[in-house]
Simulated assay, not measured.
Amino acid sequence: MSDKKSKAIEAATKLFAELGFEKTSMTAICKEANVSKGLVYHHFKSKESILIEIFASSTKKMLELSLIQDSSLEPQEELNELINNIFHQLDNNKLFFQLNLNLMFQPSTNALLKEKILKRADILFNSVKRIFDKVELEKSEILAYTFIAEIDGIALNYLSVFENYPLAKMKEEMINKYSSITNKK
């Protein structure tokens, strides 16, 4: 990917996260990236195509976080690794998560990305459920939904509600909570 295309994507990500998709113009993206409109239109047909590329990239990052590659790990190790990855990303890449929240809650972007959002949610759900299948097959589905809801709630509170959110303590609490479930095996 060219440096200027990357700059345009980075600028659009920042502006979509801060202002929202609807309120961000192509002119604003070009100005923020310090690139010409011609260059942006050379790489992207529209603001929507930039959004789709950003969402595809963010989906790839999220899947890298949640899909543990080492199947030899015990369920607790897998879950700890997943929790550590998520909290590390939350702490180190707030913009990425803020953008994803905005995309989910803005009607226009949710409609535009609906199929991709559902596909990503399904992949993430199945990844988490697979871990719980190893320890609590009867309740693995509800445990996966609960785990994802807790992560979503933590992200929402951290990103938009509380100024001094205790992210490290929340991570520790989740690890402790889920270790009691996964250690029942």
Rank of each mutant, 00 (worst) to 15 (best):
M1A: 13
L113K: 04
D133I: 04
T109H: 08
K61G: 01
E150K: 11
Y145D: 08
K134F: 05
K7E: 15
N100C: 10
E32K: 08
K61V: 11
N164I: 04
I148W: 01
A121P: 01
F87T: 02
N176V: 00
I154R: 08
K47Q: 08
E141K: 12
A111S: 14
F16T: 00
S6L: 15
S160E: 09
N80A: 07
E18N: 13
N34W: 02
N100I: 03
E138D: 14
E141W: 02
I175T: 10
S2E: 11
F87K: 01
L82I: 08
F97N: 08
E18R: 11
S57N: 15
M174G: 03
A33R: 01
F125N: 07
G38R: 06
I50R: 02
K4A: 11
F55I: 02
K134T: 06
D152A: 12
N100S: 12
E172T: 11
M1P: 12
S36G: 14
G153N: 14
I50G: 03
S6E: 15
S140M: 05
D91M: 06
E172C: 02
I68Q: 10
L19Q: 14
K5V: 06
V161N: 09
E163K: 15
S71N: 14
L156A: 13
M170H: 13
L90V: 02
K119I: 12
E81R: 13
T13H: 09
K129D: 07
L124N: 09
K37Q: 10
E32I: 00
I68S: 07
E77P: 02
I151K: 03
I54T: 01
T109C: 09
G153I: 02
R130L: 09
S72T: 15
L90P: 10
F96L: 14
I29N: 02
K4M: 11
S71G: 06
K184H: 13
F96R: 12
S25A: 05
L15T: 00
L15P: 00
V135C: 14
K114Q: 12
H42N: 12
R130A: 14
Q89A: 15
S58K: 11
N176W: 09
S180T: 09
E48A: 11
S66K: 05
S66D: 03
K61T: 11
I50T: 02
S72A: 13
K169I: 09
K114R: 15
L95T: 15
E32G: 03
V35R: 00
G20N: 06
L90Q: 05
S66Q: 10
N102M: 14
N102P: 00
I151V: 14
L67S: 10
A11E: 05
N84E: 15
F87I: 02
F162M: 12
